[in-house]
Nucleic acid binder design. Structure first.
Lengths: 156, 156
DNA sequence: TTTAATTCTTGAAAAAGTCAATGGTTTATT
DNA sequence: AATAAACCATTGACTTTTTCAAGAATTAAA
């Protein structure tokens, strides 16, 4: 093959040096696109997506999340939580428990079946995350996790 | 006010310690949600969104992106690029130039007006990014940028 | 030359996001 | 205590985004 102006490899490098590629917002969006595609694939055999997995995870945790809590923490509209919990509840993975302290709220708690499925799902997302981070050392992964959590969990 | 079991502050801390909050995928999704909301607001006065800004940025750069390049680099379907470029082109900010080397492709290049708007828009996104990173030192921001770019720009 | 791939584009369908309104409940104000 | 204001889950309408498949034009491979 003769020189054709630009090979595929050098073009990729060109894009990596673009101004946009230096912007954090772009890098985060790109990482999220690749990451959620990969995670969705890993979760598919379990009948979960990133969204429903996130709800299930919090329902398994000891945080006793109300649906409002879920909406806030997952950056979703409260109306989006409804069908997510509906689906998990229909499948017997979580239950809505009216909060005794505030009967407006419903706390979403995992059933035993939900806990078991979560254990499997967590393995899948861990593998998926490891795949995404092969180019980083263990120390670098810890560093990235620390920096990201400080930014992502900052109280607005 | 009497102790009510859990204050709002301690509940937030509880969520921050949840298993989900340790997952990179989740942190990235959350950071992206907050970041793109903020950036969209910052770009609104200029008639841009994160998407159209990204296209404009690459059209201003010296990478001569085809629409396919834009789709790949921005993690979008090629059919999503069409209306984005349509809009920018209607506003006289970019032009579609048929690639002489491959007449199937169209290279998207910014006009002078596009370059000028981009200069303003870049200031807005820079401010937006700075707002999001107030809790990090300059060294930590550089570190985060480095780690993120190594992950987000890795050749799949 | 024929076949296969690729690029842009269109259009349809599914999924996700936004927003206002409602019934039931709690908090704040008077 | 009574009234008003605020809040939660849910519904429904609406817009935007995403995903796919197909087609015309062009290039690459056989």
């Amino acid at each position: 093959m003769a020189a054709k102006g630009s090979t595929k490899a050098s073009k990729a490098e060109l894009f990596m040096r673009s101004n946009l590629a230096q912007e954090l917002e772009f890098l985060v969006a790109r990482m999220r696109a690749a990451g959620s595609a990969r995670a969705n694939k890993a979760l598919e055999p379990l009948g979960l997506k990133v969204r429903s997995y996130s709800v299930l995870s919090l329902a398994c945790d000891d945080v006793s999340p109300t649906q409002r809590d879920l909406a806030d923490f997952l950056s979703l509209d409260p109306s989006q939580i409804v069908p997510l919990v509906d689906d998990l509840e229909k499948r017997g993975l979580v239950t809505r428990i009216p909060d005794p302290a505030d009967r407006r709220s419903k706390v979403v708690i995992a059933t035993d079946a939900g806990q078991r499925l979560y254990t499997e799902a967590r393995k899948a997302t861990a593998r998926s995350e490891a795949e995404a981070l092969t180019m980083l050392s263990e120390a670098e992964r810890a560093q990235l996790r620390d920096l990201l959590s400080r930014v992502a969990l900052a109280t607005p």
